[in-house]
Write a protein that binds this DNA or RNA. Sequence first.
DNA 1: TATGAATGAGTCTTCATTCAT
DNA 2: TATGAATGAAGACTCATTCAT
Lengths: 205, 205, 205, 205
Amino acid sequence: MTYEKESRERLIKRAKKEFLEKGFAKASLRSISSGAGLTTGAVYFFFKDKDGLFGAVVGPTLERITAIITEHYQAENDEDFTTYSHEKGDHDDIAERLIPALYEDYDAVLILLEKAAGSSYDGIADRMIALTEQFYERIAEKYAAVCPGKRVNRYMLHWFCHVQINAFTHLITHVSDEQTALREIRPVMDMLIEGWMNYILEDDI
Amino acid sequence: MTYEKESRERLIKRAKKEFLEKGFAKASLRSISSGAGLTTGAVYFFFKDKDGLFGAVVGPTLERITAIITEHYQAENDEDFTTYSHEKGDHDDIAERLIPALYEDYDAVLILLEKAAGSSYDGIADRMIALTEQFYERIAEKYAAVCPGKRVNRYMLHWFCHVQINAFTHLITHVSDEQTALREIRPVMDMLIEGWMNYILEDDI
Amino acid sequence: MTYEKESRERLIKRAKKEFLEKGFAKASLRSISSGAGLTTGAVYFFFKDKDGLFGAVVGPTLERITAIITEHYQAENDEDFTTYSHEKGDHDDIAERLIPALYEDYDAVLILLEKAAGSSYDGIADRMIALTEQFYERIAEKYAAVCPGKRVNRYMLHWFCHVQINAFTHLITHVSDEQTALREIRPVMDMLIEGWMNYILEDDI
Amino acid sequence: MTYEKESRERLIKRAKKEFLEKGFAKASLRSISSGAGLTTGAVYFFFKDKDGLFGAVVGPTLERITAIITEHYQAENDEDFTTYSHEKGDHDDIAERLIPALYEDYDAVLILLEKAAGSSYDGIADRMIALTEQFYERIAEKYAAVCPGKRVNRYMLHWFCHVQINAFTHLITHVSDEQTALREIRPVMDMLIEGWMNYILEDDI
DNA sequence: TATGAATGAGTCTTCATTCAT
DNA sequence: TATGAATGAAGACTCATTCAT
């Protein structure tokens, strides 16, 4: 009876499918549980509630990704800015670490990014952006400090963070193959870095 | 007889408020109609259904914007590419035409971009992107034709369209004042044009 | 079609029956509405929610009763204590005003007193008692002031209020006929007044 | 093997807590059993069902109390009425026997009196009253027999039983300390006895 | 030109209970 | 001596939609 005890797993699997198709809000527990050969009540045996089930689908993936990003910016923050490089290809590492993580559970990431409305994971991309912005702010200020007559353009800074995160959500939304993704992201990153160097500061009148 | 129109208008006004606050899916017709001093039935007198009401809120604005974009790219497409310029500031015209259109009915645009989930207008940004992409494809091909050893990077092309549209949705989401918007968009456009010139083509191996 | 439009009334009637039989918490909206020849949704057309329906059953009656009691104690409070009498029969007025009010909607009172658990009307008897206590406190203090060597026994005071209110709930619970009620309550009131005069104060050691 | 009993005991302990807080109907077996470090199934191993568990919490206490009351009234009934005294203080014995019994398992009594709704122990106070009434009836008849021109006022008789039982439930509900309870009950009993002597009979027209 | 009434299918959630192991 | 899994029926509530008037 290998089939036994997998109920929880079957529930998560079905939920993933349903969330992907309909999004959190429109997904039906009835449909999920019956799809898993169980009743609604079973969901509440294994999970706290609908949101808890969503968390089971999406939580581990989110943790993995958050860890990578936090760690990355943490490291970048500790670095000495004078030795900080903004040449093309220098920042492939983050992409090369992030992309495998994103593609490890492709569907979960997609759900997290586009189907979480109504759940407690809603607006996760915005939270990512906010996280990114925190770190970039400090770096930008350091940069401005060594560029006389320049100051940080706050709007550009925020937009940059936005575009950067979006670059990844766009990638995962449009490229389902990890290898292709790793190749396609390169020019994107290059362009973003070049743009960052040239447009994050504005003239200090 | 002006009274006739008034109810319809009041309904639209209230609906706009409700859609903005709760999004299409979570908006309640009961709440909308009672907010307009009418009953649910009234909605079905004036509009086909919930989606029809949404269309009334958002449709005219969408048409105006679509027209501007279509027209703009149409013109660009007719242009002789050899005389086509990609210097900074050259493309301020589109921003300068689009932004007033976007800010003319600020709320409607916001709803269209972020609150349409569940309605037939869902994913409008993606449709805008698709529209944009059609035109950019031809231009990019012309560009490639005059650059020996180069070919169009399809992924970058698509991403560009994405970022370009997003630049506007980001703007409207974060800047509520039109004048500020006109100022903030400039470096964004500059950076995008520069990026376009340098990253839309890749080496043709 | 006299039958039309009575739906609301039918709903209230059925609800009254159901609340009486099962109490608020165990009453089922399904059962109530289907008993009225309607669907659950109909309940939500006419009332805010289950508690709202309960309020429709019980609210008017409660207001009537509260008004009588408040008014009575208000009057008693304004009276000069020296002329305040505690002879048997002197306080028949309150009973004679309250009992008709209680028997006007017998079932509603019963529900209010014994079947409100879980609703917002829960513990109404206790609230009545608290109300009563407020007024009695002042009177008892005045009484103590003119009785040297005596002080108010707080516990007895509270218990008295309790018994007094209970006298009425007991009455309505056990006597369904108003005329009988008016007769039976008399010795009860007499005994309570006599008790009040002799037991509300204790020796001030 | 002490371990065996322990689980059962833990279950009862937790159940007592839960019933006290939420009442029988709203108490959750899941919550009780998990609070006892066990699962729902365990409840059904030790007890027949939810009501059985309730009985285990409350039954022994109820039996103890019922025994005391029955015994007391039995004795009173056997007594010769002519020697039966109704002086103040004469009936302190029942209070002095009952109160310790009530306070021996304070929580259980509280649950029995106020949290049994929905269980088979619902309305236990009324059953107590009925029990009391049986005994009082006979005594009252004997009393009437020696008072020419008088007859038993049935309503007053019933009400008296009610008030008498309520005196104890009120006590336990408002006074958590046994010593205080023993003191506070005295004037209450005194008043009840005096009332009994004067109001239980009415003129026999 | 609307309303008021009502439906019906659906939502998530809770719970006592069962039973194989 | 329990557990863990699961059921099934019920709970309150929401809502877009319909339609006679």
